[in-house]
Protein backbone atom coordinates (compact mmCIF):
# COMPACT_ATOMS: atom_id res chain seq x y z
CA UNK A 1 0.00 0.00 0.00
CA UNK A 2 0.96 3.58 -0.03
CA UNK A 3 3.64 5.08 2.13
CA UNK A 4 2.63 7.94 4.32
CA UNK A 5 4.53 10.54 6.23
CA UNK A 6 2.22 10.32 9.15
CA UNK A 7 2.35 7.58 11.75
CA UNK A 8 -0.35 5.05 10.98
CA UNK A 9 -1.68 5.37 14.48
CA UNK A 10 -2.64 8.99 13.94
CA UNK A 11 -4.77 7.99 10.97
CA UNK A 12 -6.42 5.08 12.63
CA UNK A 13 -7.07 6.99 15.79
CA UNK A 14 -8.56 9.94 14.00
CA UNK A 15 -10.80 7.73 11.94
CA UNK A 16 -12.12 5.67 14.77
CA UNK A 17 -12.71 8.77 16.78
CA UNK A 18 -14.69 10.45 14.03
CA UNK A 19 -16.93 7.52 13.27
CA UNK A 20 -19.72 8.07 15.76
CA UNK A 21 -19.61 11.82 15.16
CA UNK A 22 -20.16 11.73 11.45
CA UNK A 23 -23.50 10.25 10.53
CA UNK A 24 -22.99 10.28 6.78
CA UNK A 25 -19.82 8.32 6.96
CA UNK A 26 -21.36 5.11 8.22
CA UNK A 27 -22.42 3.56 4.92
CA UNK A 28 -19.33 4.32 2.90
CA UNK A 29 -16.73 4.07 5.61
CA UNK A 30 -16.80 0.41 6.54
CA UNK A 31 -16.29 -0.74 2.98
CA UNK A 32 -14.33 2.22 1.59
CA UNK A 33 -11.67 0.49 -0.51
CA UNK A 34 -8.18 1.62 -1.24
CA UNK A 35 -7.56 2.38 -4.90
CA UNK A 36 -4.66 1.21 -7.04
CA UNK A 37 -3.78 2.70 -10.38
CA UNK A 38 -1.05 0.83 -12.24
CA UNK A 39 0.79 1.82 -15.38
CA UNK A 40 -1.31 4.85 -16.16
CA UNK A 41 -0.29 6.51 -19.39
CA UNK A 42 -1.41 9.52 -21.36
CA UNK A 43 0.04 10.95 -24.56
CA UNK A 44 -1.13 14.13 -26.19
CA UNK A 45 0.03 15.04 -29.69
CA UNK A 46 2.93 12.65 -29.31
CA UNK A 47 3.99 14.17 -25.97
CA UNK A 48 4.01 11.80 -23.00
CA UNK A 49 2.16 13.62 -20.23
CA UNK A 50 2.64 10.66 -17.97
CA UNK A 51 3.72 7.10 -18.49
CA UNK A 52 3.86 4.00 -16.26
CA UNK A 53 2.44 6.05 -13.43
CA UNK A 54 1.30 4.28 -10.26
CA UNK A 55 -1.06 5.84 -7.75
CA UNK A 56 -2.36 4.39 -4.50
CA UNK A 57 -5.13 5.91 -2.48
CA UNK A 58 -5.66 4.74 1.08
CA UNK A 59 -9.14 3.52 1.84
CA UNK A 60 -11.31 5.87 3.85
CA UNK A 61 -8.98 8.83 3.49
CA UNK A 62 -8.85 12.05 1.53
CA UNK A 63 -5.94 12.27 -0.90
CA UNK A 64 -5.30 15.68 -2.41
CA UNK A 65 -3.68 15.84 -5.81
CA UNK A 66 -1.95 19.06 -6.82
CA UNK A 67 0.23 20.09 -9.72
CA UNK A 68 0.63 22.65 -12.48
CA UNK A 69 -2.12 23.11 -15.04
CA UNK A 70 -1.98 20.70 -17.93
CA UNK A 71 0.07 18.11 -16.07
CA UNK A 72 -2.73 15.56 -16.28
CA UNK A 73 -4.40 15.66 -12.86
CA UNK A 74 -7.88 15.73 -14.31
CA UNK A 75 -7.00 12.99 -16.80
CA UNK A 76 -5.81 10.80 -13.95
CA UNK A 77 -9.03 11.43 -12.02
CA UNK A 78 -11.12 10.71 -15.11
CA UNK A 79 -9.19 7.49 -15.65
CA UNK A 80 -10.25 6.32 -12.19
CA UNK A 81 -13.80 7.53 -12.82
CA UNK A 82 -13.99 5.42 -15.97
CA UNK A 83 -14.37 8.56 -18.09
CA UNK A 84 -10.93 8.47 -19.71
CA UNK A 85 -10.84 9.30 -23.39
CA UNK A 86 -7.11 9.40 -23.96
CA UNK A 87 -5.53 8.05 -20.78
CA UNK A 88 -5.07 4.33 -20.20
CA UNK A 89 -4.02 2.11 -17.33
CA UNK A 90 -5.25 -0.50 -14.88
CA UNK A 91 -7.58 0.77 -12.19
CA UNK A 92 -9.00 -1.22 -9.33
CA UNK A 93 -9.48 -1.37 -5.61
CA UNK A 94 -6.80 -2.82 -3.31
CA UNK A 95 -8.23 -6.29 -3.93
CA UNK A 96 -7.88 -5.82 -7.68
CA UNK A 97 -11.63 -5.58 -8.17
CA UNK A 98 -13.08 -3.03 -10.60
CA UNK A 99 -14.50 0.16 -9.11
CA UNK A 100 -17.57 0.32 -11.30
CA UNK A 101 -20.68 1.30 -9.37
CA UNK A 102 -18.69 2.40 -6.32
CA UNK A 103 -17.79 5.90 -7.51
CA UNK A 104 -19.42 9.28 -7.12
CA UNK A 105 -18.08 12.18 -9.17
CA UNK A 106 -18.12 15.90 -8.50
CA UNK A 107 -16.75 18.49 -10.88
CA UNK A 108 -15.82 22.15 -10.77
CA UNK A 109 -19.06 23.07 -12.51
CA UNK A 110 -21.93 22.08 -10.27
CA UNK A 111 -23.50 20.17 -13.20
CA UNK A 112 -26.95 20.71 -11.76
CA UNK A 113 -29.76 20.26 -14.26
CA UNK A 114 -31.39 23.68 -14.53
CA UNK A 115 -34.90 22.32 -15.13
CA UNK A 116 -34.97 20.27 -11.93
CA UNK A 117 -35.47 21.43 -8.37
CA UNK A 118 -32.63 20.92 -5.90
CA UNK A 119 -34.37 17.83 -4.55
CA UNK A 120 -34.96 16.39 -8.03
CA UNK A 121 -31.30 17.00 -8.84
CA UNK A 122 -30.38 14.83 -5.87
CA UNK A 123 -32.67 12.11 -7.20
CA UNK A 124 -31.06 12.20 -10.64
CA UNK A 125 -28.92 9.11 -10.06
CA UNK A 126 -31.80 6.80 -9.13
CA UNK A 127 -33.82 8.22 -11.99
CA UNK A 128 -31.11 7.62 -14.58
CA UNK A 129 -30.58 4.09 -13.30
CA UNK A 130 -34.28 3.38 -13.64
CA UNK A 131 -34.89 2.83 -9.94
CA UNK A 132 -38.30 3.73 -8.58
CA UNK A 133 -38.00 6.89 -6.56
CA UNK A 134 -39.51 6.02 -3.20
CA UNK A 135 -40.67 8.23 -0.36
CA UNK A 136 -37.66 7.05 1.63
CA UNK A 137 -35.34 8.31 -1.12
CA UNK A 138 -37.06 11.67 -1.10
CA UNK A 139 -36.76 11.87 2.66
CA UNK A 140 -33.05 11.06 2.39
CA UNK A 141 -32.60 13.77 -0.23
CA UNK A 142 -34.32 16.29 2.03
CA UNK A 143 -32.17 15.16 4.92
CA UNK A 144 -28.99 15.67 2.90
CA UNK A 145 -30.14 19.09 1.75
CA UNK A 146 -30.71 19.98 5.36
CA UNK A 147 -27.21 18.82 6.23
CA UNK A 148 -25.67 21.11 3.64
CA UNK A 149 -27.84 23.91 5.03
CA UNK A 150 -30.31 24.10 2.17
CA UNK A 151 -33.52 22.66 3.62
CA UNK A 152 -35.40 25.77 2.50
CA UNK A 153 -34.15 25.51 -1.07
CA UNK A 154 -35.32 21.94 -1.78
CA UNK A 155 -37.93 23.11 -4.29
CA UNK A 156 -35.85 25.89 -5.84
CA UNK A 157 -34.33 25.49 -9.26
CA UNK A 158 -30.56 25.99 -9.57
CA UNK A 159 -31.06 29.26 -11.47
CA UNK A 160 -32.44 30.79 -8.28
CA UNK A 161 -29.44 29.75 -6.16
CA UNK A 162 -26.05 31.38 -5.66
CA UNK A 163 -22.83 29.71 -6.76
CA UNK A 164 -22.04 28.52 -3.24
CA UNK A 165 -25.54 27.14 -2.76
CA UNK A 166 -25.40 25.34 -6.08
CA UNK A 167 -22.12 23.69 -5.14
CA UNK A 168 -23.70 22.64 -1.84
CA UNK A 169 -26.50 20.98 -3.79
CA UNK A 170 -23.88 19.27 -5.94
CA UNK A 171 -22.14 18.05 -2.79
CA UNK A 172 -25.45 16.75 -1.45
CA UNK A 173 -26.07 14.96 -4.74
CA UNK A 174 -22.63 13.35 -4.51
CA UNK A 175 -23.53 12.12 -1.02
CA UNK A 176 -26.97 10.99 -2.19
CA UNK A 177 -25.21 8.54 -4.46
CA UNK A 178 -23.73 7.08 -1.27
CA UNK A 179 -20.67 5.56 -2.90
CA UNK A 180 -17.57 4.55 -0.92
CA UNK A 181 -15.30 6.32 -3.41
CA UNK A 182 -15.69 10.02 -4.21
CA UNK A 183 -13.72 11.72 -6.98
CA UNK A 184 -13.69 15.51 -6.89
CA UNK A 185 -12.20 17.68 -9.60
CA UNK A 186 -11.58 21.16 -8.19
CA UNK A 187 -15.05 21.21 -6.68
CA UNK A 188 -14.66 24.56 -4.93
CA UNK A 189 -12.48 26.38 -7.45
CA UNK A 190 -15.21 28.67 -8.73
CA UNK A 191 -16.22 29.99 -5.32
CA UNK A 192 -15.15 33.02 -3.34
CA UNK A 193 -12.65 32.48 -0.52
CA UNK A 194 -15.11 32.56 2.38
CA UNK A 195 -17.67 30.28 0.74
CA UNK A 196 -14.87 27.92 -0.23
CA UNK A 197 -13.55 27.87 3.32
CA UNK A 198 -16.98 26.98 4.70
CA UNK A 199 -17.63 24.34 2.07
CA UNK A 200 -14.27 22.66 2.66
CA UNK A 201 -15.13 22.09 6.30
CA UNK A 202 -18.58 20.84 5.41
CA UNK A 203 -17.24 18.49 2.73
CA UNK A 204 -14.52 17.08 4.98
CA UNK A 205 -17.09 16.36 7.64
CA UNK A 206 -19.65 14.77 5.33
CA UNK A 207 -17.11 12.78 3.33
CA UNK A 208 -15.18 11.39 6.26
CA UNK A 209 -14.74 7.64 6.08
CA UNK A 210 -14.90 7.53 2.29
CA UNK A 211 -11.99 7.15 -0.08
CA UNK A 212 -11.68 10.57 -1.65
CA UNK A 213 -9.47 11.84 -4.42
CA UNK A 214 -9.54 15.63 -4.49
CA UNK A 215 -7.86 17.42 -7.37
CA UNK A 216 -7.16 21.02 -6.43
CA UNK A 217 -5.07 24.05 -7.27
CA UNK A 218 -5.34 25.49 -3.81
CA UNK A 219 -2.50 24.54 -1.42
CA UNK A 220 -4.50 25.71 1.58
CA UNK A 221 -7.38 23.45 0.56
CA UNK A 222 -5.05 20.47 0.21
CA UNK A 223 -3.44 21.13 3.59
CA UNK A 224 -6.79 21.52 5.32
CA UNK A 225 -8.51 18.51 3.79
CA UNK A 226 -5.89 15.95 2.80
CA UNK A 227 -4.89 12.95 4.87
CA UNK A 228 -2.13 12.81 2.32
CA UNK A 229 -0.95 15.23 -0.31
CA UNK A 230 0.46 14.31 -3.70
CA UNK A 231 2.06 16.59 -6.24
CA UNK A 232 1.99 15.53 -9.88
CA UNK A 233 4.83 17.21 -11.74
CA UNK A 234 7.40 16.81 -14.49
CA UNK A 235 7.25 15.46 -18.00
CA UNK A 236 6.51 12.64 -18.08
CA UNK A 237 4.84 13.44 -14.78
CA UNK A 238 5.71 11.68 -11.53
CA UNK A 239 3.94 11.72 -8.22
CA UNK A 240 5.71 12.94 -5.14
CA UNK A 241 4.64 13.36 -1.54
CA UNK A 242 7.56 15.38 -0.27
CA UNK A 243 5.20 17.79 1.44
CA UNK A 244 3.52 15.94 4.27
CA UNK A 245 -0.03 16.58 5.31
CA UNK A 246 -0.24 18.37 8.66
CA UNK A 247 -1.17 16.36 11.74
CA UNK A 248 -4.74 16.20 12.96
CA UNK A 249 -7.95 15.15 11.29
CA UNK A 250 -9.40 17.20 8.47
CA UNK A 251 -10.88 19.74 8.24
CA UNK A 252 -7.95 21.45 9.91
CA UNK A 253 -8.21 25.11 10.89
CA UNK A 254 -6.33 27.39 8.53
CA UNK A 255 -3.92 28.70 11.14
CA UNK A 256 -2.72 25.16 11.92
CA UNK A 257 -1.60 24.51 8.37
CA UNK A 258 -0.11 27.92 7.61
CA UNK A 259 3.48 26.82 8.35
CA UNK A 260 3.36 24.15 5.64
CA UNK A 261 1.76 26.36 3.04
CA UNK A 262 5.10 27.95 2.16
CA UNK A 263 6.79 24.60 1.54
CA UNK A 264 3.89 23.38 -0.63
CA UNK A 265 3.78 26.63 -2.63
CA UNK A 266 7.54 26.37 -3.22
CA UNK A 267 7.15 22.79 -4.39
CA UNK A 268 4.35 23.75 -6.79
CA UNK A 269 6.25 26.75 -8.12
CA UNK A 270 9.27 24.53 -8.79
CA UNK A 271 7.05 22.06 -10.60
CA UNK A 272 5.60 24.80 -12.76
CA UNK A 273 9.07 26.13 -13.58
CA UNK A 274 10.27 22.67 -14.53
CA UNK A 275 7.24 22.18 -16.73
CA UNK A 276 7.85 25.47 -18.51
CA UNK A 277 11.47 24.56 -19.14
CA UNK A 278 10.48 21.14 -20.41
CA UNK A 279 8.02 22.85 -22.74
CA UNK A 280 10.74 25.14 -24.11
CA UNK A 281 13.20 22.35 -24.69
Amino acid sequence: MTQSDQPAGAHGGARVYRFPKSRTAAAGASEAPGICVRGAHLAFDGVQLFDRLDLDLRGGEITCLLGPSGVGKTSLLRLIAGLAEAAGGRVGDDQGQPLQGRIAYMAQQDLLLPWLSARANLLLGPRLRGETVSGAMRARADDLLQRVGLAEAADARPGALSGGMRQRVALARTLMEDRPVVLMDEPFAGLDAITRYELQALAADLLSGRTVLLVTHDPLEALRLGHSIRVLAGRPARLDDSVAAPPGAPPRPADQVADRQGALLDRLAAAKRAQREAGDA
Binding site: R78, A81, G82, L83, Q100, G101, I103, A104, Y105, A107, L111, L124, G125, L128, R129, E177, L183
Partner: peptide, 8 residues
Protein backbone atom coordinates in the same frame (compact mmCIF):
# COMPACT_ATOMS: atom_id res chain seq x y z
CA UNK B 1 -19.97 12.34 -17.64
CA UNK B 2 -21.99 12.63 -14.47
CA UNK B 3 -24.70 10.37 -15.89
CA UNK B 4 -22.07 7.78 -16.79
CA UNK B 5 -20.53 7.72 -13.32
CA UNK B 6 -24.05 7.35 -11.94
CA UNK B 7 -24.49 4.24 -14.05
CA UNK B 8 -27.36 5.74 -16.06
Amino acid sequence: DLARTMGG
